[in-house]
Amino acid sequence: MTLSASRQLHAFLLLLLLMASSRMALAHHVLGRPAYSLNEDSNTPPSMQVETQIGDYFVTYMVFPAFPRPNEPGRINLYARRMDNNQPFPGQVTFRVRDDNWFHSNEETLGVQPPVDNVFRQNFQFLKAGSYIVSASFEADGAPYIIDFPLRIGKPSAVGPIGLAVAAIVILLLLVNLIQRKRLVRDRIRHAHAGDKDRTRSQKQRP
């Protein structure tokens, strides 16, 4: 009971430490879950679009094309309006990008954009296919706002997961097969030995 309580205390202290050391503490932060959309009233191509509320702002952003590919240009359009008076955000938005993995270290700045007709436009062109996180950040009323959204460039590998699953299953079944063969051979030898012993014993018992 004491041990568990001390562990809990350690975990709580660790959490506090993490919270205190975080650089992004007290920033308005939101994750955009992407949805694909098509505007039937205009001739714009399909886009990946997210609408979200963050702090005092209602933010919409779109990625064109919906499925960007490596070495092909793309564009992010971001709109930010205050929820109380519908006024557009007048400042600048910084767009950054990083790899979408647990240990992301390489963060690059895509650009810092002022609004043009209340839209923050950021062009991009990725050289390599992969999963990225685009981060749009701005500061309003002294508070930082950060909006992250995943961006997939190119198609994810389809053969890789199948190959891995098939390889895992085949290796497992081969291992089981090998072990079972060994077991069978061992059982046969044991039975043969037992048979020999029985035969010797019965010969000895013979008068």
Binding site: M19, R23, L26, I54, I133
Partner: peptide
């Protein structure tokens, strides 16, 4: 829910996919 999680993320400094 999304608003609540966003507030929590702000409090603990969560980033990435929250």
């Amino acid at each position: 829910w999304e608003k609540g999680i966003s507030h929590l993320a702000r409090m603990i400094g969560d980033s990435g996919q929250l």
